[in-house]
């Protein structure tokens, strides 16, 4: 027997998908258009604009910067985030409860404010090099994802497992690596991916912190748009989208996507 679905539900679902996927289709179409301006539906088909990305050195350079920032910023953030999440979960009773919220602040504070204050304090105030400032900015930006996602796995971690390891002769610090880390692996990978994608696509913080000679791909995209309005912009967007999808696909193949929503 077939279950009957209400026509309104079908319509609702179709509309949701339309609004979610529609813009992406438009971007992909525009990127393939054989015209010197953005248009949809595409007129003619060409991969010229994708090729063009790699011919504009500003794009290739900033692409490298963006990847380095995403990897470096996330790694730096994990270095702080994992111990913080561990302490928050392990000493939940002893620690004051507001401490957990401190690590979510970067999400609550408008990114523009965060970017501006970092510029004022680090870049202008201390004269920190641009790349270092960017790295700190991105690490801060993604810290909440690291702490929250890793924290979620730690909250379901039974700490008596760690004590069991210690009682069997394993010092505390080593137990952290041999027993705790392997069991929160999924949370670390999930946190890393969320953070990586957030960093890669960030505009609001980077726009304050980039400077002469150093920029990120999304910022370069904006700069490019101000001068040219050709399909290269769409091609870069498709590329960024592609990376996100590829990362998700790898996760899906290795771990299953469901663990991201767990």
């Amino acid at each position: 027997m077939k279950r009957k679905t209400h026509p309104a539900l079908i319509a609702f679902t179709v509309l949701t998908f339309f609004f979610l996927l529609g813009p992406l289709v438009v971007i992909l179409g525009s990127a393939l258009s054989d015209t010197p301006f953005l248009t949809f539906p595409p007129q003619g088909l060409t991969l010229h604009w994708f090729q063009n990305i790699f011919e504009i050195s500003a794009f290739t350079r900033t692409m490298g910067t963006s990847f380095m920032l995403a990897v470096g910023g996330t790694a730096l953030s994990m270095l702080i985030g994992i111990p913080a999440a561990y302490a928050l979960a392990r000493y939940r009773v002893e620690l004051p409860s507001f401490l957990g919220n401190v690590f979510v602040l970067p999400i609550l504070i408008p990114e523009i404010v965060l970017g501006f204050s970092l510029m004022k304090s680090l870049a202008s105030g201390l004269g920190t090099p641009i790349m270092a400032t960017l790295l700190v900015g991105h690490a801060l930006l993604v810290l909440p994802y690291c702490v929250r996602v890793v924290g979620a796995s730690l909250n379901s971690f039974d700490f008596s497992i760690e004590e069991a390891a210690v009682s069997l002769g394993c010092p505390r610090w080593r137990a952290f690596f041999t027993v705790v880390l392997p069991n929160i692996r999924a949370g670390i990978i999930a946190g890393f991916i969320l953070a990586f994608i957030t960093s890669l696509n960030d505009v609001s913080i980077s726009i304050f912190l980039t400077g002469p000679g150093v920029s990120t791909l999304p910022i370069q995209l904006l700069a490019h748009m101000e001068q040219f309005f050709d399909p290269t912009i769409a091609a870069v967007s498709v590329l960024l989208m592609g990376v996100t999808v590829a990362v998700m696909a790898v996760v899906e193949r290795t771990l299953g996507l469901t663990f991201l929503t767990k």
Partner: peptide, 20 residues
């Protein structure tokens, strides 16, 4: 003496086996 140096066999209520 630190816990890891005590050489005591412990059995927990929740078993506390290493899941991995």
């Amino acid at each position: 003496l630190p816990a890891h140096a005590r050489n005591i066999g412990l059995v927990f209520q929740t078993y506390a086996l290493f899941p991995h």
